[in-house]
């Protein structure tokens, strides 16, 4: 006899999708992809496994959240993410404290990139502790079909040409302002389908 129901329920009674099938090795594989993505910005790093993600998260976004977030990382979700089954899923599997305030968030998850708040509304870190800034996880439509941008900086040999689709028109001018805060500033990991692309604060982008 079991007292607990076999599948965890969200507050409205719907069954939650599972987290990692293998929390140790799945998290390690996804972290390695994220490490490579941040170390070599501008490269689409595919994950070697797929996950059943709750709406509206893609497989890569969901996996990244499970890998990096927990009770220590207050996170902000955009309206589209918060309205789906994702918010209950994140709260259950990561023990994630969800907050409404962008300026204190350690992580921010955006699936509706066009309606993101401006980058300066997120936590830029402190001048003596620039590592405390927000890491944004932004789910985009494509890494190749958008307006062409040229990236340079640490981790890129020479320069890289990236064409991310589905970003708001102000994104790259905001990114310039973010660069001026260096060593403070937010970092971004873009996700698309089952792949990651890193954009740390050191990268200069010409739109």
């Amino acid at each position: 006899m079991t007292l607990q129901s076999p599948t965890p329920m969200s507050s409205d009674g719907a069954a939650l999708k599972p987290g990692f099938a293998d929390p140790v090795f799945d998290a390690q594989a996804v972290f390695r992809a994220a490490l490579v993505a941040i170390a070599y910005p501008g490269r689409a790093i595919p994950l070697d496994r797929t996950f059943a993600a709750p709406r509206p998260l893609s497989s890569a976004t969901a996996a990244l959240c499970l890998t990096l977030m927990d009770f220590e990382t207050p996170a902000w979700l955009d309206r589209q993410t918060a309205s789906g089954e994702a918010s209950a899923w994140l709260r259950f599997h990561c023990g994630l404290p969800l907050i409404d305030d962008t300026s204190t968030a350690r992580f921010a998850v955006g699936t509706d990139a066009l309606n993101l708040p401006h980058l300066l509304e997120f936590h830029p870190g402190e001048i003596e502790y620039p590592d405390r800034s927000t890491t944004l996880v932004i789910q985009v439509k494509s890494f190749t079909d958008g307006p062409v941008t040229t990236w340079t900086g640490p981790g890129i040999k020479g320069s890289a040409t990236i064409a991310i689709d589905g970003l708001p028109f102000w994104f790259w001018s905001d990114w310039d302002l973010n660069s001026e805060l260096y060593p403070r500033g937010v970092d971004v990991i873009f996700t698309c389908g089952n792949a990651l692309m890193g954009l740390p604060r050191t990268i200069k982008v010409e739109a």
């Binding site: 994220a34 490490l35 941040i38 170390a39 990096l68 990382t73 620039p130 590592d131 800034s133 890491t135 981790g155 060593p183 970092d187 740390p200 604060r201 050191t202």
Partner: peptide
Amino acid sequence: RSLLKALSI
């Protein structure tokens, strides 16, 4: 998380 921030700065 610390490693990713270290690579970013």
